[in-house]
């Protein structure tokens, strides 16, 4: 499967994924498939288990049952760093950046992670243009070019969200797991982020968790609706919009 640009080929698939927290079933025999190059959106009310799902896919949480396949191999038992180095990158719903590093160094770290091991003890990173030039280009791309030298902790909330995405794409992964990239953004910022995600559509396969329905319907090729850890519907946007059960459970009068 590797290398062949077959649009129907599966990039990521979950099969009968189960995760319990005590009595709570956060992921309930969940199966789905993300095709190469598509944007697959996961929507659902608060507490539906969306973040829990992303954490299992990225390796931060181990599922209690089921299987995860990525790019042709079984990654169910792999650690988070192993998956990341295979090209499965994620962003976080609650901004997770290096606050005491400059915006540029945040991205440098993201790129360095994919340049073999880092057991190199002597040469200063500041002198390594093969890291800094691409890092600058990535910041430029997400619209943070002018803010490269600002401490990440001093960036505005919207900018930190942009940095979050910049770190995810910096390593040119095969697939992005995006957990509410628009969280806490104003309407204008959301629109810009939507436009940006559309511009990189096709470059990366994406699993997109998002509450902003305008963004979801504008971007997604496939939408899966999650309620209590269970997929109650899955299909193209039009089908989901028309689905009565989905309207009742989640979209309300929308």
């Amino acid at each position: 499967m590797t290398g062949v640009q077959d649009p129907l080929a599966s990039m990521l698939s979950a099969e009968s994924l189960i995760k319990n927290f005590g009595g709570i079933v956060a992921t309930d025999s969940l199966s789905f498939d993300v095709a190469q190059g598509e944007i697959h959106a996961i929507i659902g009310p608060n507490g539906a288990g969306k973040t829990t799902l992303i954490s299992q896919l990225s390796g931060t949480l181990m599922p209690d049952g089921g299987q995860i396949r990525f790019d042709g191999s079984d990654i169910t038992r792999m650690t988070a760093p192993q998956r990341a180095r295979r090209g499965l990158a994620r962003s976080f719903q609650i901004t997770s950046i290096f606050k005491d590093f400059s915006a540029l160094d945040n991205v440098v770290l993201a790129i360095q992670a994919h340049r073999g091991h880092s057991f190199r003890f002597w040469r200063p990173v500041v002198d390594d243009l093969s890291l800094r030039d691409p890092a600058r280009a990535v910041l430029e791309e997400v619209g943070l070019g002018a803010r490269a030298d600002v401490l990440a902790g001093n960036l505005a909330h919207g900018e930190q969200r942009q940095l979050e995405i910049a770190m995810a794409i910096a390593s040119e992964p095969k697939m992005l797991l995006l957990d509410e990239p628009m969280a806490g953004m104003g309407p204008e910022e959301s629109e810009r982020m939507t436009a940006y995600l559309r511009s990189i559509k096709g470059r990366y396969t994406m699993l997109l968790v998002e509450h902003d329905m305008d963004a979801v319907f504008a971007l997604a090729d496939t939408i899966t609706v999650l309620v209590y850890g269970r997929a109650i519907a899955s299909g193209p946007p039009d089908t989901i919009r028309a689905n009565a059960e989905v309207r009742a459970a989640y979209l309300g009068e929308d």
């Binding site: 760093p81 976080f92 005491d100 590093f101 440098v108 770290l109």
Partner: peptide, 20 residues
């Protein structure tokens, strides 16, 4: 060095380092 960056990064945000 690259090594030092990793150690400092882990101090700053270990989870993010692993995700990277």
């Amino acid at each position: 060095s690259p090594f030092g960056m990793v150690v400092r990064g882990a101090k700053s945000n270990d989870n993010r380092m692993q995700a990277l």
